[in-house]
Computed example of a mutant assay.
Amino acid sequence: MRVARRSVALGAALLLVAVTLAATGGRRVPADVPELRDGDVWVVGISHPRGGWSVCFDDGAVAESLVTADLPTSGASATFAVGASESDVRRVLGCLNRHLTGGEVAVTTRSA
């Protein structure tokens, strides 16, 4: 009986994880973009990126991208050009959502 109960509990837990991942798409990309203040630009940073994410930083709205020299890469960032719009940031985040297979993404702002 105990084994059966454990199997049911494990099955329920796995189902909950699967439903949660399906609902979020396994998303590692934040949905929120911080408000931009005058003189600031957006920066998208990725810690421990995995997958084919680098194509996402090859975007006309990205002024500069940096990747750490260590292998595997421990970090990458894209600084957007002055005048980039929130839709530009969301386009890059959408690309990351499709191509990033590991790592965590954060969107911040900094002075231009």
Rank of each mutant, 00 (worst) to 15 (best):
1 M>Y: 13
3 V>T: 03
3 V>H: 05
3 V>R: 09
7 S>M: 11
7 S>V: 09
7 S>Y: 07
9 A>F: 12
9 A>P: 01
9 A>N: 06
9 A>Y: 13
11 G>T: 04
12 A>F: 05
13 A>K: 14
14 L>F: 15
14 L>S: 08
14 L>E: 06
15 L>D: 03
15 L>T: 05
16 L>Q: 09
16 L>F: 15
18 A>I: 12
18 A>G: 02
18 A>Q: 14
20 T>H: 13
20 T>W: 12
21 L>F: 15
22 A>K: 04
23 A>V: 14
24 T>C: 06
27 R>N: 08
28 R>G: 02
29 V>M: 02
30 P>L: 07
30 P>K: 10
31 A>M: 06
31 A>R: 07
32 D>N: 11
33 V>A: 00
34 P>H: 03
36 L>T: 07
37 R>V: 01
38 D>V: 00
38 D>I: 00
38 D>K: 02
38 D>C: 00
39 G>Y: 02
39 G>N: 04
39 G>V: 02
40 D>G: 04
40 D>I: 11
41 V>K: 00
42 W>L: 01
42 W>F: 08
42 W>T: 00
44 V>M: 14
45 G>R: 07
47 S>M: 04
48 H>A: 13
48 H>S: 03
51 G>D: 05
51 G>V: 15
52 G>P: 10
52 G>E: 15
53 W>D: 01
54 S>E: 11
54 S>G: 11
54 S>M: 09
54 S>P: 12
55 V>M: 08
57 F>Q: 01
57 F>D: 00
58 D>Y: 12
59 D>H: 04
59 D>K: 01
61 A>R: 00
61 A>V: 01
63 A>H: 14
65 S>I: 10
66 L>D: 03
69 A>Q: 10
70 D>R: 06
70 D>C: 09
70 D>N: 13
70 D>V: 05
72 P>Y: 02
73 T>N: 10
73 T>D: 11
74 S>L: 09
75 G>P: 14
75 G>C: 08
75 G>A: 14
76 A>S: 06
77 S>K: 13
78 A>T: 05
80 F>P: 15
81 A>P: 01
81 A>S: 12
82 V>A: 14
82 V>L: 08
83 G>F: 03
83 G>T: 05
86 E>P: 05
86 E>D: 08
86 E>H: 01
88 D>R: 01
92 V>K: 02
93 L>N: 06
95 C>R: 06
95 C>S: 12
96 L>S: 11
98 R>P: 05
99 H>F: 14
100 L>P: 06
101 T>Q: 14
101 T>F: 12
102 G>C: 11
103 G>Q: 09
104 E>T: 15
104 E>P: 06
105 V>P: 00
106 A>K: 11
107 V>A: 06
109 T>P: 10
110 R>W: 14
111 S>C: 08
112 A>Y: 06
